[in-house]
Design a protein around this nucleic acid. Sequence first.
RNA 1: GCGGGCGUGGCGGAACUGGUAUACGCACACGACUUAAAAUCGUGAGCCGUUAGGCAUACGGGUUCGACUCCCGUCGCCCGCACCA
Length: 885
Amino acid sequence: MTNQAVAEKLVDGPPEAGHDSERNRSTMSRYNFLEAEAKWQAAWSARNCFASTVDPTRPKYYVLEMFPYPSGRIHMGHVRNYTMGDVVARYKRAKGFNVLHPMGWDAFGLPAENAARDQKIHPASWTYDNIANMRAELKRMGLALDWSKELATCHPGYYEHQQRIFLDFFQAGLAYRKEAFVNWDPIDQTVLANEQVIDGRGWRSGAPVEKRKLSQWFLKITDYAEDLLQALGGLDRWPEKVRLMQENWIGKSTGAHVRFKLVGRDDRIEVFTTRPDTLFGASFIAVSPDHAIAEEAAKADPRAAAFIAECRAAGTSEAAVEAQEKRGHKLAIEAEHPLMPGKTLPVYIANFVLIEYGTGAIFGCPAHDQRDLDFARKYDLTVTPVVLPHGEDAQTFAVADVAYTDDGTIYNSGFLDGLDSESAKKKAGAKLKEQGDGAPTTIFRLRDWLVSRQRYWGCPIPIIHCEACGPVAVPAKDLPVRLPDDVTFEKPGNPLDHHPSWKHVACPTCGKAARRETDTFDTFVDSSWYFARFCSPRDEQPVDRAAVDYWLPVDQYIGGVEHAILHLLYSRFFARAMKKVGHLSLDEPFAGLFTQGMVCHETYRDPATGDWLLPEQVERRGTQMVRADTGGAIETGRSEKMSKSKKNVVAPDVIIDGYGADTARWFVLSDSPPERDMEWTAAGVEGAWRFAQRLWRLCFLWLEAHPGIVAATLPDTMSDAATALRRASHKAIAGVSDDIEKFRFNRAVARIYEFANALGEVAEGDLADPAGLFARREALTTLAQLIGPMMPHLAEEMWASLGHRTLLAETAWPEADPVLIIDDQATVAIQVNGKLRATIQLPRDCDRQVAETRALAEEAVIRAMDGKAPKKVVVVPNRIVNVVV
RNA sequence: GCGGGCGUGGCGGAACUGGUAUACGCACACGACUUAAAAUCGUGAGCCGUUAGGCAUACGGGUUCGACUCCCGUCGCCCGCACCA
């Protein structure tokens, strides 16, 4: 069945829902979500409900979901993400906050160029068409977004300011050009930042990356390494997991640099170590195959060159690395031990030393490092223990195949003897510094951020290269540097570089012929500051200080955990760098972060062909899953993240056409906790749809049976029945509010079900007196308000049916009456020796003695006590009485 | 290997700060309405047992009047990082 056919079939109900004859016979019509949702979306739009302006007299709340890449269609992950954000936005607005909730497009990137190449569509028109389509899909979700602040990073009105910010960074020394080994992605034909290499492969293409030496632009994120690390401690509304991942990525290590003199030479080898306390146990020096010393050796020694080539060929990817044997090539160089006069150490090129960490060279201390030990055993090097574990005897302690890597007492180590590891580290560091052979140091794993990409569809780097003047900033009056439209994508490599004229310009400084930078920015640059641009998206400056000072930080940011390092770390850096050059006043852009789980679905496969099948190609016959077309058996696989490759996808627009936006929103919020993965099922959607219909029916039937509800006012006296209903309403308010505050949307959904169930139990003829009508009115009003953030269209429909002329979207959140959320009776569990024997009703906060007496009088309690006298009675007021015998 | 998370009915999950385990939903069964079905409404249900009761929150211990919750150990699953010196 095509999507269109499904949509037509589902226009007014779920599959195989009601027949027309039945609907005609019914006294009430079914809730028509298609009509209602369009109506209320138009009403919100006409009233401009969700537009936000700076207003320092009101408390602000900035809710942001990670903006989407305009691939063309929204997927269920978007639906889940944006629904959660929308619940928060609508709730906070109702709670009186001035809410900023914008939407935009992360619009640069390689897929547009691939589309250009494959379908002969210009990246710009491909992108803008996709945006138009996705915007329409998002609008149908009924999101409380301020569309007047929409932005797209591919628009010159956005990237112009990015170029300004970059030039500010350049001037402040935060951006620089450097020749370095870079990660080259042979498929995407561009370089990648360290963070974008996963298991030795490009994050997007999946191709094994190659090392190339190129001159590229970097941003000085390492200037902020310490601060980015320290400030994690203050991000108390971030998931612990994300903070840990960033901490590991930044990778701070304290230790020392040690510079070893080389026998008969003037230069030295510098190593980094976290264990200067083990220096006396050194038995060799090892350098990376990419180290300068290794390269030098390769020129003179073909065997060294061969070894290096072998190491590079082995690659650095995947589990193969783990199994890889420690191997080395001995050089004709000896190093002098700085703390042991006369002692020299052999120098090796070793396959396990990484050029990108520390200095690309180490000293080997086999007794106290497993890798060094493996290496030493292979090449028959000395193993001298210098750290004695607590409780071991110096005479008998020996290292065989397992290195001792913990702390202990230092021995065999000259002036360090007798010290504990910590003190020895300090003393060794101080001694090295005194001798000029090294110094205590702290290093970071974090590297500077490589932002050059050899691509067309990105923000041009606003630099002109001049033979005489070097790299020169494009003057402000010439910004933006626009992308040329007339480019071709047939040739591999960078289309901007291939363009016949674009790069040829005069040097702004000396006027001589010069060349434009043809690299564009990594698209993570675009997304590193969009949250700030949203505060004043049309301003002539990158940001309007008054606006960002009012709106930032983002109070609640919501997105996928896959951005835990890349995007979130870059954005934290950008905030600091933008502060340094005067655009912002704060360091941390996101005060609160929530990472939502993925949307999963079962997978289906045809065992005959091995092809994956779409959920709509499959149907259930009894307990068997079969192909809808042929009836052939299929294999049902485990539930996995929805993905095009496994075809376990359900398109949001089909669901919205068939069941409405409210149903889709309700379903993604129900059942699974938001931080966990959720399972998309047809039955679940239908359950949500049925509930929406049930709410509408409940409201309609009550109003039909009791027209007095609409005008009901608070009467002088309350009946018990009315008070009971009022309690249910106020408990629901208190519970749902608390759940939304704590991001427990699935619990809020469950509470609303319970509340609706309670209303459903009210008999038709009951509560027809003034008190009852008032309680009924309050209940329906409460129901509409509580579902408001989740099913906003149905909520408006109910709200209007209760006689309101205002929009629920502009109505304050209800307050729970504290008197009504506490019962005057408590159900108390009675235990004997911790086992439940009875439950009894007691007046709330009754005397302990009363509780005890009542408990001991219970028949089941007496039976369980078996004639024994109570040794002790534990009374927890309003909860439990435990009789210990 | 290092770091983190998780383990509760047939399924998704709830249970606040240690106080009635299994809320709520899905699926299921039965009943009502119907010529019939769908939709809707109602009822039931952790397991064993006729009842009394017993046993159950991955497994084994511990602390406590009382443990899904805290502590120790074991097993399993998931995620991140990884030759990081």
